[in-house]
Design a protein around this nucleic acid. Structure first.
Lengths: 235, 235
DNA sequence: TACTTATTGATTGTATACAACAATGCGCAC
DNA sequence: GTGCGCATTGTTGTATACAATCAATAAGTA
């Protein structure tokens, strides 16, 4: 319960508390497995447990928090399987979404994306790795928003939040790939309205992220690909 | 509040009530816009409003129910835009999922799918259109389950529930396309382990469903395709 | 008669009290 | 000394009471 905001100017609605917790988790200020006691939270935010419970249930629905019956709420700890699934789902959604974004982006959208990268850089310069990670997620979210599909944006939003937990658990130090490189390239493709390239870049970016994790099981999609190749044709 | 179960053997947990309501909505026993009063529901299910509220919030998170502050909960009424988005999201997720299912399906899975179709037929024979619609959705869900990706299955589940609302609002009588035809063909492709064909069939099945709706706006994806073709290449 | 406004009724939002359950620590027996 | 069982304590689950808000209706005036 260390790093959350104190009660001073804190939000007092269920949604506000959920957002604050979500962000704290996203920025790795709350580690996976951390207990989120209802009394603690209601003290911190100055509301009753009723409100806190609503916030926790909302987060549980996004699978960012796990509620164990009669045991309480904890920051979720995605399994290896879940980790694979989340990135496989992102690989299914985000590349085509990046294509749409490239085709629909207006100049103002490009500006927003570039502003995101700048913030990301300054966070890294300030050594705030958590904030940089959060901003990196927001970059992906912004692309979905530009694509103009709220439903897909919502799904991506949840997947990004879960990705943050996965990175907290399974990131390996060796792989220090620089995100901003990939993000810069994406912005260029989108600014050029090059849908093909945006889709490709997003796909390979996600594959890079996925493979930068310490996940030793073979993911289901790879099994499918293997079987697909063995049965003798390509999609 | 007409067609829900009476209190006799009703579920008493938040999840149970959410499931019962979800199913009633899915089967068109509760029309879009229907008020879901907390007192009414707590009387019907014999639990306090606390439990009912949790169930309603859960359904609201799936966008099957809309909660208006200080006004109460209503069965959702998806807008035209939402309707398009839901089917576009399904077109993004389900075809590739059907491919995976074809590659991973075991004999027992095929049996389950065929059992689904049989139930669907008997529901239609009994004139229970709502139940047939529900079962049709479950068929799609079962395919996602066979593909073995819980995360994607969850997303598809939500999209199917919302689709049911969209069909209630925007289905046009003229289009009496027979779902079971398409479902039969899908089973065959899956049984043959023909991933390509399963993907194709699912794609065209979803396009058929989408175009059988009374949606006169031009969807975003079509705009993208148009612009993509104009800029001179194919994905 | 039409329009505004105040009162009333009903419904939701929030807090709190109590019940049920799990975890912990102590004591006792082996 | 170790293992088991029980009591205690703390936390969550549920119900209910009260406050706040909104919708509807009725009264009053132009």
């Amino acid at each position: 319960m260390a790093a959350t905001n104190t009660a001073s100017d804190s939000p007092v609605s269920s949604a506000g508390i959920a957002a604050a917790l979500s962000r704290a988790i996203h920025e790795h200020r709350l580690a996976p497995g951390t207990k989120l006691g209802e009394d603690d939270l209601s003290d911190i935010y100055g509301v009753s447990r009723t409100i806190v419970r609503a916030a926790l249930q909302s987060l549980a629905h996004q699978q960012v928090v796990e509620i164990k019956r009669n045991r309480g709420a904890f920051v979720a700890q995605p399994s290896l399987t879940e980790a694979h699934e989340v990135f496989e789902a992102r690989e299914l959604l985000e590349p085509r979404t990046a294509r749409s974004a490239a085709l629909r982006a207006k100049p103002a959208d490009i500006d927003v994306l570039q502003a995101h990268i700048l913030q990301e850089h300054s966070a890294l310069d300030a050594g705030d790795r958590g904030r940089a990670l959060f901003l990196s997620g927001q970059f992906h979210l912004e692309i979905a928003r530009i694509a103009g599909q709220q439903t897909i944006t919502d799904m991506v939003n949840v997947l990004i939040a879960r990705s943050s937990l996965i990175i907290a658990l399974y990131w390996r130090r060796e792989s220090a790939l620089c995100e901003s490189q990939a993000h810069h390239a994406l912005i260029k493709a989108i600014a050029d309205k090059d849908g093909d390239r945006a889709e490709e870049l997003m796909q390979s970016h996600l594959v890079d992220l996925h493979s930068a994790l310490n996940l030793h099981e073979m993911p289901a999609v790879v099994q499918d690909l293997k079987q697909m190749l063995l049965s003798g044709d390509s999609g």
